[in-house]
Amino acid sequence: MTSITSTRLQPAANYVEIRDMTFMRGERAIFKNVNIDIPKGKVTAIMGPSGTGKTTLLRLIGGQLKPDQGRIVVDGHNVPELGRSDLFEVRSKMGMLFQSGALFTDLSVYENVAFPLRVHTDLPEDMIRDIVLMKLQAVGLRGAKHLMPSELSGGMARRAALARAIALDPDLVMYDEPFAGQDPMAMGVVVQLIRLLNDALGHTSIVVSHDVQETASIADYIYVVSGGEVIGQGTADEVLNSDLPRVRQFMQGLPDGPVPFHFPAPSLEDDFLRGSSL
């Protein structure tokens, strides 16, 4: 608690603060001295090409991975230093929507949404029922409560998972690639839901995505991450019209630029003139 008062930003303004965070996987640095602030009550997007560790960032915030250096402060707690029970306490205020939805395949939609309530509360059954139906109503799946996850379409599964993520009325909801692999209609529904839920329930949202248009349409603030660094940040308009070449290449989907189209290779002449040897 006392540690955050010394930071230069207002502690109350940001729900998550990442300071000088370095995370290594083996010899490779996934993040190098990254600083990210997630303001309270806003939708913040983390964008970047595939394989830049965006999902890893969410896992770091959730405390499933530990950084090699730096602090990750969530709601005033430095997550990497928390003990098991404190960590679970902090997590109960977080909801996470995984890329694949990650509904428990052996439970019905209803039981999936009820799962966090049963674990963290001692509410009587009829109250759990009311909450679950409310959350399912919010994502438009109240009628699908008895279906099993295998009977849902991809878009519906993600909405059901969203209902589960907000079951405990979390302060922070993290979305891992919520638009990936969705048809345009399902994608539109999710885009709208993220914005609506954020405004209606007043929680903080983090959206990790590489879908530029959809993300830009709902995000209040965007970080562009590439090669383990934050290469650009700002509001949607600022980032979309950025002059920084790397940001521009990513946001506008240019095939060649600072991130080269060609995988590093020996020069063309060498490779072709050398003959048969590989």
């Binding site: 499933q64 679970f88 997590r91 109960s92 996470m96 995984f98 990650a102 395949t105 799962f115 674990v119």
Partner: peptide, 10 residues
């Protein structure tokens, strides 16, 4: 990711 999401639920 069911195991990871279970862990996130606590």
């Amino acid at each position: 990711e069911q195991l990871a999401s279970m862990e996130m639920i606590g």
